[in-house]
Design a protein around this nucleic acid. Structure first.
Lengths: 148, 148
DNA sequence: TACTAACTCTACAAAGTCGATATAGTTTTC
DNA sequence: GAAAACTATATCGACTTTGTAGAGTTAGTA
């Protein structure tokens, strides 16, 4: 299960991507429209700003907007920022590898071998699907490949 | 990330599957060999017993064994018992569906649509890979299909 | 029969995580 | 200079995770 926080983050980014670019969008507007607690959303967007996903403008006519084009922001990238590693086992994580201390030998670990397949399958979707894909601006990856 | 408990459960089942059938295996032996806290493993195996995965024999010469053939026990089944739903969102769970209260309309939810693909990919591996596959008694599903 | 080594159950506890709230700023516009 | 927006950090209650503890039950064996 992904966290509520990650769900909020993705919904907020989808909302921002639908907005006409140029003029910033209020946190309050997104919070209300998406039923996200405003103060909680502030934290989330601030975090995404620190990671270079969104940009903000301060002051009375301030607000948030995407810093990069929606088709360069993948679900995987956001999930890693908000929830941490995507991998189902610490010994399979790319961004936070940690050996399983209770595992004798990594190469021969049956459980690891199976979950490596899970990780590949999961990353295959999350790292190739962007915010732009999600709002249907392009065909989803699978169809795109089929057509291309 | 799957829980430590689930990892223990799967490792214990792999260990049981490698054991010659017929004579039960002590919890203590598995715990020691797999470096799992014994009392914790007792809880886990008891839970698996309640769910019809393993069988136990009480008394001095007691122990545990698989109740069903290893090729009928999938990783997905064990994960659902130990960790609960596999789905990345409550509104995508088969065993514990729950609507996202903060989502306007399920059919048009962009986040849900993407994670439905993740859920399919994950289940594709977990529900088709068995303990028997993990210990290499058969070819893994993908290769098996390719050969068949 | 009594002992002992195994499984069975329930309770509890320390530490961490999650989802949010609170409070006190800072910046910009009007 | 007031208002409205973003920034930043601290805190909190509920829950989950990862075990530990201890008393009870069963059955083989001397």
């Amino acid at each position: 299960m992904i966290s509520q926080k990650a769900k909020y983050a993705l919904r907020a980014l989808v909302a921002l991507a639908k907005q006409p670019p140029g003029s910033p969008t209020f946190i309050g507007d997104i919070a209300e429209e998406q039923k996200i607690p405003k103060k909680f959303l502030e934290q989330i967007l601030l975090d995404l700003k620190h990671h270079g996903i969104v940009a903000s403008k301060r002051g009375k006519a301030g607000g948030y907007g995407l810093l990069r084009p929606a088709d360069t922001i993948s679900f995987g990238e956001i999930l890693r920022i908000v929830d941490g590693p995507i991998a189902p086992l610490p010994c399979l994580s790319k961004i936070a590898y940690r050996r399983c201390t209770d595992c004798k030998e990594e190469a021969s670990c049956e459980v690891r071998r199976v979950f490596a397949q899970v990780a590949d399958a999961t990353r295959g979707v999350l790292d190739r699907t962007t915010i732009s894909d999600a709002i249907g601006e392009r065909l989803p990856p699978r169809l795109r490949d089929a057509v291309a």
